[in-house]
Design a protein around this nucleic acid. Structure first.
Length: 493
RNA sequence: CGGAGUUUAGCGCAGUUGGUAGCGCGCUACGUUCGGGACGUAGAGGUCGGGCGUUCGAGUCGCCUAACUCCGACCA
C-alpha cells in the first residue's frame, strides 16, 4: 500500500485544506498575480479540455451550434431586465477608459483621463443581455426559430472570497442560449439540457447527481424556473454542478424580441440558458479523491495509464523500453491514452507516489524480473490494489480495468451519498442532523420565508426540489403547513 | 466588507536581549544507486513583501501600506 504523503493535509484533519493542497500539489492550478483569479496549469487544463470535448459533442448531438459573443457588454443592457441586474450588479467589473499613457514623471503608465468611455462597458458576468440584443436582429418569423447556440467563454464575477476552481473571479464555462416559438418547446429544451448535464456528470465524471428545480431564493436572476444538478461532496456538503434555466419571455420582453407566428401574429420569443463551468473540476476532485491525492475517472483523466520502468542500468532500460513500445502501441490501438515515464532523474518509488497524487487511473510497472517472466505489475488508483499479470493481452486487461474503475468510483460515490441521505421530519432533529452533513430530505411549505429562516438558523438551504423520487405529501418541518413533496436540504459550496 | 494569521533562496520554514542571514526539500555537476518518495561529494541561488521612521547599526523595534491564507457576511 502507498504511504500517505507527508505534505498533503488529510481529509479528516481539515477537508478545506486538503482540497487546497491537492489542487496545488497535483499541479492543477495556482493562484495568480491578480486577486481571485487562477492560473489553470496544463494538467488541470487537460481535464477541462476532456470535459469540453465531451460536452461539446453532446451539445452538437442535441442540435446545438457554437458561436461567440463579446466579452464587453454596454452598461445600459444590464439594466434592461430588473431581476437580472439585481442579481449581478454587485459583482461586475467595469471598463471606464480605453487608453493608457506614460506617466508624466516617466514612471510607468497611468489611465489617460482624456480617454473616458462615453458608455461604460461591463465585463460579462453572463451573456443573456448581449445575446438577446443580438437575437433581436436574427429573429423575425417563426421560420427563424429555434436558435440553438452555445458559446465557450470566460466570465467575470467579482467575488469577495475565492477558492481555486470552486469560486474564482474569472472562470471558464459554456453558456447555451436558445430561442423558441413556444413555451413548451423552451421548457423541453431546458429539461433536455439538464439531462445532458446529468448524463455527463454520472457517465463521465462518475459523480451521481440529483436533478431538481431551484426554490425561488436560489433561482437565477431573470429566470422563470431554474433546473439544476446537485452533487454531494465527501465532506457532506452539496455542490451545484450545473444549471439550466427556463427564462420565459423575460429577456425577449426586455430586448423586444418578437416574431410573426404561423397565424401572422406578433409574439415574444421563449428562451433558455444553461451552463457548466470549470467548477466541475472542483466537483471532480472533491467527489473521488483521497489522502494519497487525486482519483480521476478514466474517461476524464489526461492520461489513463502511466508506465514506470524499473531498471538498474542502461541495458535493462533499453530492453524494457523496447517491450514497453509494443505495449504502448497495443494500448493506443484500442483508444487508451498512456504516458511512459522513463525519466532517469526520479526513482520508481517517487514516480509511483507522484502519479498517485495526480490520480492516474492505472499504473503499469515493468522491470527486469517481469521481462524474464513475461509479466507486468498493474496498480489501480481507486483501490490502490496491485497485482502481477501476464504481459500477453495486457491491453484488454487494462481496458476492462479502466471500465471497472469508472464504474467503481461512481458506485462508491453513490453509496456514500445514499449513506448520508436521510429523511428528517422535525425541525429539532433537522438542527442536529444538518451538523453531520449530507442530504436531508424534508417537507417544506414552499415559502421563501421558511427557507430563509432555516438558512439563518442552520446555514442550510434547499438545494433543489427533486424531479424524480418520492412525491408523497406531508407537513413542513418548521411550520407544519402542507407540503407536496420532500425537498433536498444541505449546506453547500 | 468585518475578525484572525502569514509574508526571509524556486518551495516549506528557523532566525534569541537589535550586531550585517541559516536549515530541509528542490536545482547544477560527478559518482554509487534504482521492485514504494535513495545516498555521498562539490556547487549555484537572498533588494528578509513595499515605504517611512527610531538607532552608530534593523530580518528583529514603531508607524503606514500591499498581497496572500483561514474564519464570517455575500455568491455559480
Amino acid at each position: 500500500m502507498a504511504k500517505e504523503l507527508k505534505e498533503l493535509t488529510s481529509r479528516e484533519e481539515n477537508y478545506a485544506q486538503w482540497y487546497n493542497d491537492l489542487v496545488i500539489k497535483a499541479d492543477l492550478a495556482e493562484n495568480s498575480a491578480v486577486r481571485g483569479c487562477m492560473v489553470i496549469k496544463p494538467y488541470g487544463y487537460a481535464i477541462w479540455e476532456k470535459m469540453q470535448r465531451q460536452l461539446d459533442d453532446m451539445f452538437k448531438e442535441t442540435g446545438h451550434i457554437n458561436a461567440y459573443f463579446p466579452l464587453f457588454i454596454p452598461k445600459s443592457f444590464l439594466s434592461r431586465e430588473a431581476d437580472h441586474v439585481e442579481g449581478f450588479a454587485k459583482e461586475c467589473a467595469v471598463v471606464t477608459h480605453y487608453r493608457l499613457k506614460t506617466n508624466p514623471d516617466g514612471t510607468g503608465v497611468v489611465v489617460d483621463p482624456e480617454a473616458k468611455l462615453e458608455e461604460e462597458l461591463i465585463v460579462r458576468p453572463t451573456s443573456e443581455t448581449i445575446i438577446w440584443s443580438t437575437y433581436k436582429n436574427w429573429i423575425q418569423s417563426y421560420r427563424d426559430l429555434p436558435i440553438l447556440c452555445n458559446q465557450w467563454a470566460n466570465v467575470v464575477r467579482w467575488e469577495m472570497r475565492t477558492r481555486l476552481f470552486l469560486r474564482t473571479a474569472e472562470f471558464l464555462w459554456q453558456e447555451g442560449h436558445t430561442a423558441h416559438a413556444t413555451e413548451e418547446e423552451a421548457l423541453e429544451e431546458a429539461r433536455k439540457m439538464l439531462d445532458v448535464y446529468a448524463d455527463f456528470a454520472e457517465k463521465y465524471m462518475a459523480v451521481p447527481v440529483i436533478k431538481g428545480i431551484k426554490s425561488a431564493n436560489e433561482r437565477f436572476a431573470g429566470a422563470v424556473e431554474t433546473f439544476c444538478i446537485e452533487a454531494l461532496m465527501q465532506d457532506g456538503k452539496s455542490l451545484q454542478a450545473g444549471t439550466s434555466h427556463f427564462l420565459g419571455q423575460n429577456f425577449a420582453k426586455a430586448f423586444d424580441v418578437q416574431f410573426i407566428d404561423q397565424e401572422n401574429k406578433l409574439q415574444y420569443v421563449w428562451a433558455t440558458s444553461w451552463g457548466v463551468s470549470t467548477r466541475l473540476i472542483g466537483a471532480l476532485i472533491m467527489a473521488h479523491s483521497d489522502n494519497n491525492g487525486l482519483v480521476l475517472p478514466p474517461k476524464l483523466a489526461p492520461f489513463q495509464v502511466v508506465i514506470v520502468p524499473i531498471y538498474k542500468n542502461d541495458e535493462q532500460r533499453n530492453a524494457i523500453s523496447e517491450k514497453v513500445a509494443t505495449i504502448i502501441a497495443q494500448l493506443k490501438a484500442i483508444g487508451i491514452s498512456v504516458k511512459y515515464d522513463d525519466s532517469n532523474n526520479r526513482k520508481p518509488g517517487w514516480k509511483f507516489a507522484e502519479y498517485e497524487l495526480k490520480g492516474v487511473p492505472v499504473r503499469l510497472a515493468i522491470g527486469a524480473r517481469d521481462l524474464e517472466n513475461g509479466t507486468i505489475e498493474v496498480m489501480r488508483r481507486d483501490t490502490l490494489k496491485k497485482e502481477t499479470v501476464t504481459m500477453e493481452g495486457i491491453e484488454l486487461y487494462v481496458k476492462d480495468l479502466l471500465e471497472d474503475i469508472q464504474t467503481n468510483i461512481y458506485k462508491k460515490a453513490l453509496d456514500f451519498r445514499t449513506s448520508v441521505t436521510r429523511e428528517v421530519d422535525s425541525y429539532d432533529e433537522f438542527k442536529v442532523e444538518i451538523e453531520k452533513g449530507g442530504f436531508l430530505m424534508c417537507h417544506w411549505d414552499g415559502t421563501s420565508e421558511t427557507e430563509e429562516r432555516i438558512k439563518q438558523e442552520t446555514k442550510a438551504t434547499i438545494r433543489c426540489i427533486p424531479l424524480n423520487g418520492d412525491k408523497t405529501p406531508g407537513k413542513c418541518i418548521v411550520t407544519g403547513k402542507p407540503s407536496a413533496q420532500r425537498v433536498v436540504f444541505a449546506r453547500n459550496y
